[in-house]
């Protein structure tokens, strides 16, 4: 498993030479500076860029960050995360449109639903490791796809359209662009911070130990399966939160969000940005969404471009953008 994520973690970096702790401190200072600049940039962004575009990027960035919690920090490649993203989008869209639920409660409802799905899928999927885990999650998410295709509340091929944005806490009108933008930004930051906290908690360190050497973690007395399941449910819940936000922002929930292609896209975002890095998935998501927007109007097939980037990333560029940047700075 250790070859999967080459980006140096705090512990492995410190082992290499005596100066490493100082560099590590430098690196985390740079990280903090990047975070502050990014947040300030995001606060100012809606005055310069089309807000719906940034909000879409934020939703997918959170989705990829949640996915990276599993791939980057536990070493589990889930090829079925679209089920949680798209499933939560359906739940939230239905709750808002049919039950008239308040948007924040609907998002919590969607994320909780995704977490529950994650529990069921996780219990089955963690029975296998490595590539089998990827195949099992892919197959189970395909099953969920067919279920969503057939149950009446999703409206099959049409999806749930015209989802109202509603009033946040019955007070703030989310139809105003700036209101919904800052609502989505706060949710994104909350989700992002949650992942950061999980990764840097004692629990997160156990997860990384499992990634590096599962057998050793078992022999140290950790109940590895429980840790994996907990991480899986957390990842599914936050991925669901991202899907719920997407349903409110774009006012639509469709089969595209639960299809396996979507699972592939989130893998690509994470791989491109840098798996096992905090900022990588968000950067990857921003690039992929920008690229899709750019090529949507042209004659070039997006699937082929995504495939080409996939192949290039795997062959030449396995650390991803942030992973390469960290490596250069460490030199």
């Amino acid at each position: 498993m250790s070859s999967l994520t080459q980006s140096g973690t705090a512990t492995s970096g410190a082992k290499e030479d005596g100066k490493a702790p100082a560099r590590q401190k430098n690196l985390s200072r740079i990280g903090l500076a990047v975070a502050v600049i990014a947040v300030l940039g995001l606060i100012a962004a809606p005055f310069f860029v089309y807000p719906v575009f940034i909000m879409t990027v934020l939703c997918f960035a959170l989705f990829a960050t949640a996915f990276n919690l599993l791939l980057g920090y536990v070493g589990l490649l889930s090829f079925g995360h679209a089920a949680f993203f798209g499933g939560a989008a359906y739940f939230t869209a239905h709750a808002v449109k049919v039950w008239g639920l308040e948007p924040l409660s609907a998002i919590i409802f969607g994320a909780a639903g995704a977490g529950l799905m994650g529990l069921v899928v996780g219990v089955v999927a963690i029975r296998r490791q490595g590539i089998y885990f990827a195949m099992v999650t892919l197959a189970l998410s395909q099953m969920i796809f067919f279920i969503f295709l057939q149950v009446p509340f999703t409206h099959g091929e049409d999806g749930i359209q015209g989802v109202p944005r509603g009033d946040l806490l019955w007070l703030i009108d989310l139809n105003r662009p700036l209101n919904i933008y800052y609502f989505v930004l706060v949710l994104f930051l909350a989700g992002f911070y949650a992942v950061w906290r999980i990764v840097h908690s004692p629990f997160g360190h156990v997860l990384q130990a499992i990634r590096e050497n599962e057998n050793r973690a078992i022999s140290l007395g950790y109940r590895v399966d429980r840790y994996k399941l907990a991480a899986f449910v957390m990842s599914a819940t936050i991925a669901g939160m991202a899907g719920s936000m997407k349903a409110i922002v774009l006012q639509i929930a469709t089969l595209t969000d639960v299809a396996w292609q979507m699972s592939g896209e989130v893998v690509l975002m994470t791989l491109l940005g840098g798996m096992g890095t905090i900022f990588g998935p968000s950067i990857g998501a921003a690039l992929v969404i920008t690229m899709q927007n750019y090529f949507a109007t042209s004659n070039v097939p997006v699937t082929v471009i995504i495939g080409v980037i996939f192949v290039l990333c795997v062959l030449l560029f396995r650390r991803g953008i942030v992973g390469e940047a960290i490596r250069l700075m460490k030199r």
Binding site: L77, I131, G264, V267, L271, T303, I306, V308, V314
Partner: peptide
Amino acid sequence: LDHLYGLLFTFGLALIIEG
């Protein structure tokens, strides 16, 4: 490398061919 890279590579390949 880790076997997952083979899966990811062939996934990209499938997207290119089918696309």
